[in-house]
Design a protein around this nucleic acid. Sequence first.
DNA 1: TGATAAAAAGTTTTT
DNA 2: CTTTTTATCA
Length: 792
Amino acid sequence: MASVADHPILKGLNNAQRRAVSSSSATVAILAGPGSGKTHTLTSRVVWLVDEVGYRPQDVVVATFTVKAAREMMDRIGRALGGGREKKLILGTFHSICRRYLSAYGGKIGLPKDFGIADDKDSRGIVERVCKRLKLTLDPPTARAWISKQKAGGSEKESARAKKPPGKSLGLQELQTCYDEYQKQLERSNLLDYDDLLVRCVELLRKFPSCVSNIQSVLIDEYQDTNGIQYELMKLFAQHRSRITIVGDPDQSIYGWRSAEIGNLWRLLREFKGTEEVSLEDNYRSSQSILNLSLQVIQQDKDRYKKVLKPVHTRGSRPVLRKLKNAYAEADWIVCEMRRVIMMSGNMLTHSDVAILLRSAALSRHIESTLGKAGIAYKMVGGFKFYDRAEIKTLLDYLRVVHQPHNNDALSRIMNVPKRGIGEGTIKNLIEEAEQASMSLWTLLVKHCRGQRTAKTKITKHTEQRITGGLIRVIEDLRKISAHTDDVSGDSDGLVGLIHQLIKLLDFERFLKDTHPDDHEQRWANVQEFINVAADFVRDLEQTGDDTLPEIQGLQQSVETELLPRFLANVSLASDVQTGEDGENKPLVTISTIHAAKGLEWPVVFIPAVYQGSIPHARSEDQNEERRLLYVAMTRAKCLLYLSCPTYRSNSSDEPCELSSFVATISRSFLEKGPCLDRPVMEQIAQIVKRKLPSNEAIYGSLPSMYSPEDDFGCGPESEQDNRRNTSRQIGASIDAPPAKRPRLSAPAGGYDSSKELDWRKDYATTMEQSSNFTLKKSGTKTLHMLLQLAT
DNA sequence: TGATAAAAAGTTTTT
DNA sequence: CTTTTTATCA
């Protein structure tokens, strides 16, 4: 026993955590609030199971919900385990694990070998088409949501959720027809949508349990987010030994809209008697006052499962609820306050210690442009996706057609890109015609152009030539190249070569210049970046050999040889592109959606737009979930937490804006303005972040003279002007100059002595200059490339 | 029939 | 502020 307690992995864990990590129970449920070290505990248990219990890494399944969480976990386990053994773990998001199993064993359940993955856009397009063709009176998005719900619910009737057939039985009938037709379409294009990955994997593991006969233990992170089908998957993965470890927090369940069922927790405890429950009660993250206030928010939910949260840190300063005139003032204030905090900490805190968390990605616009103008570098997490940029999407669609010519949707999207004189109507007709003849669009086109069959849709000679020469030819040439990339070990830049060739054949740079004269450089840079991403992918795959499943005796698995399908799958399943290694040099402020911020923490957190309609969102169905969302956001903060709310909406009509009901009743518990940041306060912060606070001399010496160390935004002599919207933006450091080519350095408003400004502004100058391109461009077009520019 | 210009409408969260 | 629909012209 004593030797067990001595294992290095248990060092630095508290008693409850140790109990969870080293538990010999078959099933372990770790329930704990934010900041209690849940993920750390889970990773430690993985290490424990491998190192101490002796399971082979390839016999352990670890499932997460986001790609980011999976990467993070892989990193952490790797560090603790060493020897690169973590790479053998079956670790990833549910979706990526399922994809792996399906490509290895999908043949057993009649799945074609080279199935593709239908992303959001594909599936939306298909549903729309189906609705139109069958003349259904359905709202396509609603239908799609319904279909997804059906799939995600799981097949076991545990969830007696026959609750809402939206509307009448007629509606239900239509939905069902739409569902069937949708599936038929997917099948025809050899595609699986996100939900299908899970559904089909359940089918596989149920019919062929031997695929997972090696699995010793299954671990699930963020368990409160599992939906019906994921619960089934979990059980199926664990079907041979029933060894399951889950960690979760019902208060942080924020994926109900994705059919997550909190009930899965009780279900687990019921179905697996003798589950050891461990609760982690110590909160290592936040100051007492942040924790108290977050608790006040979440406790408004009367039905919740109550948990203990014991702060280990000092009281800290009270969170702030700031009211501003409008969203512009709000953004300006954030910049101001952020600077104040950093200055008053004598740079103990930097930009990378600050996060701005948003209910929806669209809210980032004001903030991004204000940060840009203030010359503050930032990174945006969630929201925009690199792979969604038009030019990248086009290239990807070409690649998808190369891989799967029968993917009608991808083909129809690229048919007229670059322009080949085929209009929307023509494409629609052709698809329709192919549909009638039950062949794919590709087959129809090829047949037509070879003269084996004349399409009844009119195609002029000229366009026909362009299709033959420009499209069919390109695809077929590329397919030849692709065939040579077959073995991974051989030609290592096969994939990259393929992409290069594609770009060359399309004359893509010229195409971009022609179609986007204003910002073709941007877009071309994105294309270059895309090539880099592909190269990285190839390199990573060669290094890690990741993605493969352990061999099981007596079981034939088809080996994934081709690079292209793997790359495409990776793209569909990755929400963002890895920016990791590049961005770390410059401290960047993080802007993120709340959803994407789950599991992360920052010393300083801003939550703007805390108003009715944003949190809770106007379109949300579940108030409690919205409240939990706010709770998640608030509990990301370690030391300083700021909520803010504009009094007026800033879209054309200046309607008044109502404070979120979640904080309205407790608004008196907040400070109205940023706290005083004197020495004692800063020392508490230093203690929480475990850094050393610079001396008073160092802090105050570098302060601009006459600098007011208070949060007096909007109270100074300038405040009169703030009433006009356009001038209200000038607080952010650089904008009171007339519009210049490059943001000019000038004194912030508010009556400081501008002659002393130079010293402290020097730090910002470099980023400011580099960021000029990004502030002057339309703000929607920020790209990875720009971030890289900022970073280097 | 397709491309271009002008007008209109639309914005949650992720795999 | 942007994407999608509609009208007009070639």
